[in-house]
Write a protein that binds this DNA or RNA. Structure first.
Lengths: 240, 240
DNA sequence: CCCACGAGGTACGATTTCGTACGAAAAAAA
DNA sequence: TTTTTTTCGTACGAAATCGTACCTCGTGGG
């Protein structure tokens, strides 16, 4: 990474943009550009976090797992954020499984220098804490949706959250993976997506679906979508 | 609050115990002892957080609400923690509704001096961050339970989490309130509790239920209970 | 070009939970 | 004590979702 001050403006990760120049120069030399393939694992539950990943493109799924192997997605991360929230909180253990749900690229940084950088800079820490807070809000609303929303609402919510983090309208995912994230049957996802398709909200192809009418999907998601997104915006605006 | 160094040992809040002496002396003079009545509101969603509450006894429900007034509990707080997590993250807006689900008492501290104290002490911040992390873990597992567990499992989980934070086995709550927290029908809670009673796990009276066989309830909750609790223990042990 | 396999479409009964409602019982208020 | 309110017990059909299974179809590899 040479001449980082020049490249920064061309980066897509929102956290980079929110860092003060001196914080950026603290971080930048340690960033390692990385291609993030589909299903690439970035955190293993119970294991130490080795790197934080600043996402430029693509979507990370953060999936909580329990002892009986019940699992469900508790949040997604894209260009607005980074993985490795526990490190910001002073913990180095990965609670959840985290992997690329939609391939992309980004930068990663080893955990140790990252924590050291946090220790050196309050302002950098402030940015990271806001980002972590935004993720917490997202998780809380996932809990709300999981408990109160119907399958269609949850599916719509997920599509919107993914879409927010993508540059294209095409979501390259099988029904099976959507089902895993939502913790529902694959067949249930298929039926719901069909309903979306018939209403003209999406188009489907094998292993891919394309958003055609986003506002239609927003209507389906209703109030289960939007709050965390607005809060993210607010939190990121607060940082100077 | 006079002679706080003497009283500290007699306090029940785990965070107090984990603070370094100098951090404690930073905090202690600003603590205001407070009785926390049933249903007493400590945070209003969307409003600024005015105080953080360190719980000594009793249980706080943290409830996420969306625009359509769908609501569900995303976490509980007792003697292991405090309310006002967003303040630790550099935000002063309450995301969720928070109120006493089970009456008790504790100490509160105004938000401004609390934030100032955090700014003054890295070690104090470290304790608070660990506590916040523990709460995040709890919320993530609530999301998991909401999405994958059955009513009985979730109810059992809730009872165990409440019990962990109480000194007695008697939970002074109506079925109605349990239903609100879990986001299910009151009638569903009644039926489930009956099943628990018939299996000898609890005894019921109007507005109150008593745990008789905790391990029975633990078996019902299965793997939906335990991980966040173990993590809390670990995180708090880490703090020196 | 064909085959094997993964993905999707669909079906069916079983389960879980819902929405609602109504009466009984207990506690609180009068 | 009597009345009122709250809480609980229970029931019913409806809706949502499940678990499972089986078949079809598209696509990439052989």
């Amino acid at each position: 990474m040479n001449d980082l001050s020049l490249t920064r403006a061309s980066l897509r990760n929102h956290l980079f943009a929110k860092m003060r120049p001196d914080d950026w120069s603290l971080i930048a030399p340690l960033l390692e550009p990385i291609t993030l393939k589909e299903r690439q694992v970035v955190e293993v539950p119970g294991k130490p976090i080795t790197h934080v990943y600043f996402i430029e493109t693509g979507v990370v799924s953060v999936v909580a797992v329990n002892a009986d192997d019940h699992r469900i997605e508790v949040g997604v991360i894209g260009k607005e954020g980074m993985t490795g929230v526990p490190l910001v909180m002073g913990d180095n253990k990965a609670q959840h499984s985290a992997y690329m749900q939609i391939a992309g690229n980004g930068f990663r940084m080893a955990a140790t220098p990252f924590v050291e950088a946090l220790a050196k800079s309050v302002s950098l820490t402030a940015v990271m804490l806001k980002s972590a807070q935004a993720f917490m809000i997202q998780t809380a609303h996932t809990a709300l949706a999981n408990g109160r929303a119907k399958l269609e609402e949850r599916l719509a919510r997920w599509l919107l959250m993914a879409h927010d983090r993508m540059d294209t309208d095409a979501v390259p995912l099988t029904h099976e993976f959507l089902a895993v994230m939502l913790g529902v049957r694959r067949a249930g996802v298929t039926v719901a997506l069909h309903s979306f398709e018939q209403r003209g909200f999406i188009a489907m192809r094998r292993g891919q679906l394309t958003l055609i009418n986003r506002s239609g999907i927003e209507q389906v998601a209703g109030s289960f979508y939007g709050m965390p997104e607005a809060e993210l915006k607010r939190l990121m605006a607060e940082v100077v």
